[in-house]
Design a protein around this nucleic acid. Structure first.
Lengths: 143, 143
DNA sequence: CTTTTAGGTCAATATTATTGACCTTTTATA
DNA sequence: TATAAAAGGTCAATAATATTGACCTAAAAG
């Protein structure tokens, strides 16, 4: 059992998690909405940008969605020429995904709002706080 | 413009945010799914529990969803007798929401998984890290 | 040569959300 | 007091996003 005062502190954490996550996704969401895109499109652009030549299967592992749920938004990004799709040379079943120059630009705009948000907050808090934040989040993510 | 090494550090933050949020909502989501409930039901239970006698309008402000999107899950919680709905004495247009004993128990189970997760992580990290985490999240939320 | 893997796509369905319209009850105000 | 505004509720149509199941090709692995 958790002590009641302690529980109140932890409930603050829960609420901050909820409100900050919402604030953090608002920037990209607004830009996406203007183009008729959704959060999954951003996630695809983000992870393909971070790791070029990512396979479709790897992307599915990261996003934890079904192949069919990925298919539509990925196809849209391909037909908008924001993402490219090339056959791997080592295994020709595999499609390696990369961002096109336009894809790189859109990803930079989307993620850019979040980078600015973070830079703005973290410059006030110091390197040590940032490390602590990451440690906590890493442990949560590894659950 | 943001320095490229700095950008990599901030992209780590973005990814940790994504992965930790997903891990953090998994516990309640699994319990909810067994009862045919969704994340909104948890949010209703959570915020009504935190602030008993919350009005429907106040709840809408917090959740930032439409009245119609709240209506169905709230009605379900009322008919399952997890939430109660009483006319305010000072303004009889207003319905004050409260958890029933069963609602309190379910909310405790749902939020309980998150409290345990947090307690487990934060006990390793110390009070100071916890304060830093909250500071950062508060600033993000207030954006 | 057969099986498995990677990828793709169609169809049916489910969930969750939206906007718009319309209703009652109650309070506030011109 | 008559009327406007606020709080709440609900129906309908639609949209977005997801699921599962089925089935297909191409290429690699056994």
């Amino acid at each position: 059992m958790i002590d009641s005062d302690r529980e109140q502190e932890l409930r603050e954490v829960i609420e901050l998690f909820f409100f900050s996550y919402r604030a953090f996704t608002r920037g990209p969401d607004e830009i996406l909405a203007k183009r008729g895109l959704g959060r999954v499109h951003h996630r695809i652009l983000y992870f393909v940008g971070r790791q070029p030549n990512l396979s479709v299967n790897d992307l599915l592992q990261v996003l934890q969605i079904s192949k069919q749920a990925l298919n539509t938004p990925l196809r849209q990004l391909l037909s908008m020429e924001l993402v490219r799709n090339e056959q791997s040379k080592t295994d020709r079943r595999v499609r390696e995904l990369r961002l096109t120059p336009a894809g790189i630009r859109l990803e930079a705009r989307l993620t850019g709002t979040q980078l600015l948000q973070l830079e703005d907050v973290l410059k006030d808090q110091g390197k040590k706080s940032e490390k602590s934040w990451k440690q906590i989040m890493r442990q949560l993510a590894d659950d």
